[in-house]
Design a protein around this nucleic acid. Structure first.
Length: 497
RNA sequence: GUCCCGUUCGUCUAGUCUGGCCUAGGACCCUAGAUUUUCAUUCUAGUAACAGGGGUUCAACUCCCCUACGGGAUACCA
């Protein structure tokens, strides 16, 4: 995201490169998460693999291919060049030997942990002998000894590191596949990369790469190492942390992508002193890489959820309805989406300010689609007023006499077109051949007055009988939405239990 | 072990570069109240922080040093 924001704010080219040289981790699944996740968040790229993001075809570019495993020829050329120049050498040490070396270093409390330079000064004859024995070799970078490398990080400022801390790192595996630090440098050069934004854990890699860039006779791109994101315990956020989901899981749960984007942007960066909610465009306009914080931020799902609600409430109902489709539709009989647009629009309108993620809709509206079980609160509300059984019967009779809209899944005529929920207090009453929420209110109030029932007492149990819960939209909107048959059925059933 | 980085309300942050406008601002969370037929929304109010110690200075959250704590790196992972 910060890479994207930096490129966009500078008017640069945002390049997506797939670093897939670890074949165990580079799977179709991880690719799906990268492309799908970026696309969902609306992070588009100018160069890179082909993929469609928000209707825009991303990818292409003059410096491809953008998958490292398709660039092996290129790494081989540069490796030969470095070998010839003496910046690299072949190492015949096995991983097993390296384990031993490190174990010994640890046991001796050595200040230095890493490759001991065993093969650094092998002669041609040594190498020939080992080759003859069939010992495989990898390629290591010959790190200059005892040199202070100074880098200027866009976020961290000037930092000095002595190469004593760094060992001769492996550039190419025995099978010819390069490792991250090497491939990265070759590609950055070939792709004319000017800025690299990456996690803090890569800081030392930046030093190694800087030295390699020098060996190749080039300056390194500008580096910006951003702080990590922490879990609740204060350690690097991991997929395994409770409550943490992959981008695609957030998508599938109906988190608004704008909200997730906005929330993540806030982890390490502030838009302004008094605003937390902003658009991508506003972020791009305000973004400065140097103002990204240096300290890691804890991931707080409370604030994420607040942000989600904030975005959902901002949408118009007509925007919210199609965006909720996949979750709502899954809970409906086949084909009802198209035939019940007006009704579903009203359902969404009633719950828009009551959900935090879109997948909550079907659950919240469940009572409209099937007769509900009473939850604990609802049962209590009814039990508290035994006299309400008589109200159920009486009110059902009142409703029966009214020209109410039908209950889902029956056709509701044009009731939902005439009445747009939620009912606003001071709105003019729509002309409708069906009983509107306002008409239902008049009838209900007339009934309670005639029978000397306190209106406040009346609503609780009746709502419970109708919806199975004590939460939800306005009472008259509930009655209107539920429709005649279901209202009568539920009231009369509970009147006799 | 060694090196590097960091530390403002419980959390995300503004302010720190360019010391005084900071009796430290906003947001989330929490609490209380208002509105209401419930819930939610909305609105109002409240609790709550410059890690500690030295220096420099007329003046330090802001600059310097030390300590403590936290994190990262130290792979034939990225």
């Amino acid at each position: 995201m910060y890479n994207w924001a930096l490129a966009r704010s500078l008017g640069g080219t945002f390049v997506l490169r797939i670093e897939d040289t670890d074949r165990a981790r580079s799977t179709d699944e991880s690719l799906k998460i990268i492309f799908g996740g970026l696309a969902w968040l609306g992070i588009d790229w100018d160069e890179g693999p082909d993929f469609e993001v928000a209707g825009k075809q991303c990818g292409g570019g003059d410096y491809g291919p953008y998958f490292q495993m398709e660039r092996l020829d290129r790494y081989e050329v540069v490796a030969e060049q470095l070998l010839a120049a003496g910046h690299a050498y072949r190492c015949f040490c096995t991983p097993e030997r390296m384990d031993e070396v490190r174990a010994k270093q640890k046991a001796n409390k050595s200040a230095f942990l890493g490759y001991d330079g065993h093969c650094r000064n092998l002669t041609d004859a040594d190498r020939a002998a080992l080759d003859a024995k069939g010992v495989s070799s990898n390629l290591r970078f010959r790190m200059p000894r005892d040199r202070v490398v100074k880098v200027t990080d866009l976020i961290r400022g000037e930092v000095e590191v002595n190469t004593k801390q760094l060992d001769d790192w492996v550039m190419v595996r025995p099978d010819g596949v390069p490792l991250y630090n090497f491939a990265c440098v070759v590609d950055d050069l070939d792709m004319k990369i000017t800025h690299v934004v990456r996690g803090e854990e890569h800081f030392l890699n930046g030093i190694k790469q800087t030295v390699l860039f020098e060996a190749l006779g080039h300056e390194s791109p500008q580096f910006a190492h951003i702080p990590l994101i922490f879990n609740q315990k204060g350690a690097k956020l991991s997929k395994r942390d409770p409550g943490v989901k992959s981008t695609l899981e957030y998508r599938d749960l109906g988190y608004p992508p704008e909200a997730v984007f906005n929330y993540i942007a806030l982890l390490g960066w502030g838009f302004s002193a008094d605003r937390d909610v902003f658009t991508k465009e506003e972020m791009v306009a305000a973004f400065k890489i140097s103002s990204v914080g240096k300290a890691p931020a804890k991931f707080d799902s409370d604030k994420l959820h607040w942000m989600c609600g904030e975005y959902i409430r901002k949408w118009s109902v007509d925007e919210c309805l199609p965006r909720s489709r996949q979750w709502l539709e899954a809970a409906l009989p086949r084909g009802s989406w198209d035939s019940h647009q007006g009704f579903l629009r009203n359902v969404v309108a009633c719950y828009q300010e009551r959900v935090v993620v879109l997948s909550e809709f079907p659950d919240k509206a469940q009572w409209l689609f099937a007769d509900p079980e009473l939850d604990e609160q609802a049962a209590k509300a009814i039990k508290k007023r035994p006299e309400c059984k008589a109200w159920f019967t009486g009110f059902a009779d009142v409703l029966e006499a009214l020209p109410m809209a039908s209950s889902f899944p029956a056709a509701r005529g044009d009731a939902d077109e005439a009445v747009r929920l939620p009912t606003a207090e001071d709105a003019d009453e729509p002309a409708s051949t069906f009983a509107t929420p306002a008409a239902l209110e008049r009838a209900a109030r007339a009934y309670t007055e005639a029978n000397d029932i306190k209106f406040g007492h009346f609503v609780g149990p009746v709502r419970a009988a109708l919806t199975g819960t004590n939460k939800g939209p306005g009472f008259f909107d509930v009655v209107f939405l539920l429709g005649k048959e279901a209202c009568l059925r539920r009231l009369r059933k509970l009147a006799h239990t």
